[in-house]
């Protein structure tokens, strides 16, 4: 199991003077492929409804920061996310899990879906699954700061649920510093 030290490195210029045009093109292709898969940037709130974009960090470590979840790109996954949120509103967490898993089958690399799934598992007191899904979200978020923020803050919530307040606080502080 990996520690919280494995925070994602900030995206820096990849294509330096050392790289040739061919290798640069290759990396840019990869990056573009990532952009296509990870989708757009229309933010939605926890309820799945469109919300304002803005800072994703919380400057106050004692208060859970407001999260902005970038929605999945496909309408199929978006619909399922909305249905899952609706199921949660109606106290049907198991249905929400089934719906979110369907959404993930459509967009398995979409970090925000893993974050949401982690949240639902946490609400069901399944912190082991919630932890791993938060980790998955972090790994998938990569250089997308919004998604990474949401994923890390979800991990902080899992730590809190596990009584690991020090680790949770570290994440919040680091995250706050990172956001500057």
């Amino acid at each position: 199991m990996l520690g919280i030290e494995t925070l994602p490195s900030a995206l820096k210029a990849l294509v330096t003077g050392q790289l040739s045009r061919r290798t640069s093109t290759l990396l840019v292709t990869f990056l573009l492929a990532g952009c296509v898969s990870t989708g757009g940037n229309v933010p939605v709130s926890d309820s799945g409804k469109p919300g304002p974009s803005g800072p994703t960090a919380d400057d106050n470590a004692d208060e859970p920061p407001q999260r902005v979840i970038t929605p999945p790109r496909s309408s199929g996954a978006q619909t399922l996310l909305a249905q899952a949120n609706n199921a949660l509103d109606n106290q049907r967490p198991n249905t929400a899990i089934v719906l979110l898993e369907r959404a993930i089958r459509i967009e398995p690399r979409e970090a925000s879906l893993w974050v949401r799934l982690s949240e639902v598992h946490l609400s069901q007191r399944d912190d082991v699954t919630a932890f791993q899904h938060a980790r998955k979200a972090i790994a998938l978020a990569g250089s997308n700061s919004n998604k990474a923020a949401a994923a890390w803050l979800q991990l902080a919530k899992v730590y809190e649920a596990q009584g690991k307040t020090r680790e949770a606080r570290q994440i919040r502080q680091r995250y706050s510093r990172a956001r500057g």
Binding site: S9, A10, L11, K12, L14, Q18, L19, S20, R22, T23, L26, L27, F30, L31, A33, G34, S37, R109, G142, S143
Partner: peptide, 29 residues
């Protein structure tokens, strides 16, 4: 495959592992 960006990616010569560019060597990144 989606290869996420890594700030430490470097072009190295395939045969020797030395840092190089594709202008002076056969490289992989």
């Amino acid at each position: 495959l989606i290869i996420l960006a890594n700030e430490n990616s470097v072009a190295i010569e395939y045969d020797t592992g030395l840092q190089a560019t594709d202008k002076c060597a056969d490289v992989v990144v």
